[in-house]
Nucleic acid binder design. Structure first.
Lengths: 265, 265
DNA sequence: GCTGGACCCTCCCACGGTGGGAGAGTCCAG
DNA sequence: CTGGACTCTCCCACCGTGGGAGGGTCCAGC
């Protein structure tokens, strides 16, 4: 223990731990890694060899892109607690990867130029639906819809209904519905069921068909909304999706979905 | 064309395109999306419905996390050029996902607590290697090593050599070697070959064994360097890796690698 | 002892994109 | 004409890092 050499200057320590001098000063100020000693006269920082472990850990965790605040918590936490902290960050990173993958899919489609959606304005007839509703935060919509659809189909088993399945969603997706988004699975039917029913009257709608995975639906909506707003029209809810070819019927790349948006002048 | 309603205020336009007023002002200042008209007396911005398409495109591309500079270029580029711009961004994003996956693997291992490496200080005997070298930038190390190893094995076919394969790397990985990192595949042998040979003298080394994929090697190095620096020792190059169980011999999760670092007091 | 060069200090600014808030002016419906 | 909703500009904050200015400190070689 006593044979460990003396403290060293910030430059030396920085080279040792593959950090920049600027970083070390920043970590000092942030309380993340205080030098072993600071000369009160000159302000020079001196680091002890024993601090190399923490410095290297910081470098490692920064490489994984953890925020300094988290690294501070990790270093301060007793050994058994670190796993939990790191697991939370792990989940955060996994989420980001998932989001990035969705972005990549969008970007792929955009870059390859297969992003053209033909928009048509037409009159949608009145329809009567049996529906199952749920509330979910955006991002879990697919999951919530799946549960609703399963329940819907189970209840309608043996009843007569006209495919395809539909989905109804509020128009203002990410805005006011901070703590839950209404998800509605719907099946057009005239049969009388125990389920809630919704009557959509005939409407002046703008519509397009999207082929491909649902992660790329935003592209179709982009085209749809651009088309609507360019003409000075106003969309009125709800958003209607008809799953012409839905999951389970084909591969994600072959899904076919009709989007409808009622418009007013 | 003439039936499109008038221009609208920034707040209305913002709600329409799901952007914030702040964002729109920022995009104006950045030259990304200028209002159709700015009242010279009051400074009020007024947007035309026809601008909704660009605004929605900006919102879409921002969602994919493209920098504003890129979005500017995309909007300014003629249609046929957009694909190329977007493809470049696509590749950037794909790279990021790859890096994030490596980070996730590290974080997984850290969080699950299976990150303990036993460090031992020992004397490594002198060894004579037949080697093949290459230069690669960090990130392509694995690729470069693979080629070197293939060449090495092809040349040594029929010759006598003692498994496992080794790898030698400069100690200062990411520092001064900005434009290329020396990668050396090595096989211990006494046979005389047409290959370059390297004689490593006996050395005082610190060593540990890592099991698992190579993406997690940094963890082992972290422990190794922490161990060394805590004791005030100085590592001297090159870094030696012995691939006890290498790729091709087992699944990535079952790889076994011995790391060695010569130290000096 | 002195000097030069390598090192260290603090303080400010920049990046990117967004949001918050202050303080003042503008629009429009009642 | 008034009040409330809207808009304007300007400044600051976030996060982590790097650059640079301007000035002080250390130490080896003379």
């Amino acid at each position: 223990m006593g044979t460990v050499p003396d403290e060293m200057t910030i430059g030396r320590f920085a080279r040792l731990c593959r950090l920049s001098v600027k970083q070390l000063r920043h970590y000092d100020e942030a309380g993340l890694l205080r030098p072993a000693r600071v000369d009160p006269a000159t302000g020079y920082r001196y680091y002890a060899p024993a601090q190399a472990r923490d410095a290297l850990t910081i470098a490692l965790l920064r490489e994984i892109d953890l925020p300094l605040a988290v690294i501070t918590a990790v270093l301060a936490a007793p050994e058994p607690d670190r796993g939990r902290l790191l697991s939370a960050e792990r989940d955060r990173l996994a989420d980001r990867i998932d989001r990035d993958r969705a972005r990549l899919a969008l970007l792929d489609r955009l870059a390859s130029g297969h992003a053209d959606h033909e928009v048509i304005r037409t009159t949608e007839p009145a329809r009567r639906f049996a529906v199952v509703r749920a509330t979910a935060d955006p991002g879990r919509i697919g999951l919530a819809y799946g549960e609703c659809a399963a329940q819907l189909l189970a209840t309608l088993a043996g009843q007569s209904w006209k495919p395809p399945l539909w989905g109804l969603y509020p128009l203002d997706l990410p805005d006011d519905v901070a703590d839950g988004l209404l998800v509605t699975a719907a099946a057009e039917t005239d049969a009388i069921t125990t389920l809630e029913t919704v009557e959509l009257p005939a409407a002046d709608v703008v519509t397009t068909v999207h082929d491909g995975p649902y992660a790329e639906l935003r592209l179709a909506y982009h085209t749809l909304f651009a088309w609507i707003h360019e003409r000075g029209l106003t969309p009125v809810g709800p958003v209607r999706e008809a799953y012409l070819i839905g999951p389970g019927e084909a591969e994600p790349t072959d899904l076919l979905t009709r989007l409808m948006l009622e418009v007013r002048a």
